[in-house]
Design a protein around this nucleic acid. Sequence first.
DNA 1: TTCCTAATGCAACCGAGTTGCATTTTGAGG
DNA 2: CCTCAAAATGCAACTCGGTTGCATTAGGAA
Lengths: 140, 140
Amino acid sequence: MTDYNKILESAGLRPTDAREAVLGALYRIGRPASHGEVAEALKGQLDRVTIYRNLYLLEEARLAHKVQGVDGKWRFCAHDPDVVGCPGDHPHFLCLSCGKMICLLGQTLPHVDVPDGVKVQGKQLVVYGLCPECSRDRQK
Amino acid sequence: MTDYNKILESAGLRPTDAREAVLGALYRIGRPASHGEVAEALKGQLDRVTIYRNLYLLEEARLAHKVQGVDGKWRFCAHDPDVVGCPGDHPHFLCLSCGKMICLLGQTLPHVDVPDGVKVQGKQLVVYGLCPECSRDRQK
DNA sequence: TTCCTAATGCAACCGAGTTGCATTTTGAGG
DNA sequence: CCTCAAAATGCAACTCGGTTGCATTAGGAA
Ligand SMILES: [Mn+2]
Ligand SMILES: [Mn+2]
Ligand SMILES: [Zn+2]
Ligand SMILES: [Zn+2]
């Protein structure tokens, strides 16, 4: 059983109840989760604004990374704080049917050439389609 | 001067005034443009819902491709209908300051390995940061 | 304990995108 | 040319993820 407060403190964040709950939910879900998914996992335990603000803080503290699916929703994914390097630097898959997102670990984002003068701050590669479950359901 | 009606008809779309105006705006803008940018280019000439619906139809008819920026807004880009292969299959750059998007032509999207059973329908690679103009402005 | 600051809850707001429906336009067939 | 059904448009209302302001509550250093 993970001690989320330890993780929060080592990242310089106050270990409040709400914060612990949000981080715990992310870890339990185990894949990038939207605000809504986190709220659902916490069953109305917290105000949705508190969830929003804590997800934002977790990301800023680098305890989570965020990706936007082609459905326009942001998803947050908690990673092991011991991992070296910029986390989230991998492609993601989004199921257009059920909305689940999956980290495609073990693959890096490609280098992209940009025009002179452009300052790159980040990039994201989102692959979308149907997850195994939804793909199977659709065939029936 | 391009004949947008010809293009519309050859794609199986009725060449209405609104349609011609929207397609023309996309061509004139010359880079992926959001609904708002198209509306602005047309100076209130059309209802915004009409713009939405026509952008959707243009994309469906493959006269334009669409990409979502990390700001959550969709951008539509008209391409030469003579181009072979799936259009839009290239990375895009989004300026987080001015919101302009640029097609990064001449580069393809990488192959991405997905788990067994996943059915891929598409992918998009968005690089974001500051465009040359905004990058310059920010230094002052 | 005290007291200042950070965090939370609640309500109101925002804006991109969508939907329903009445009205207008288009174009195929006569 | 007309006629008329289907397609397109305009307008209003709506959805929903995300944001903001502010009063209240909790955290923790002194
Ligand atoms: Mn990830
Ligand atoms: Mn493009
Ligand atoms: Zn699915
Ligand atoms: Zn810019």
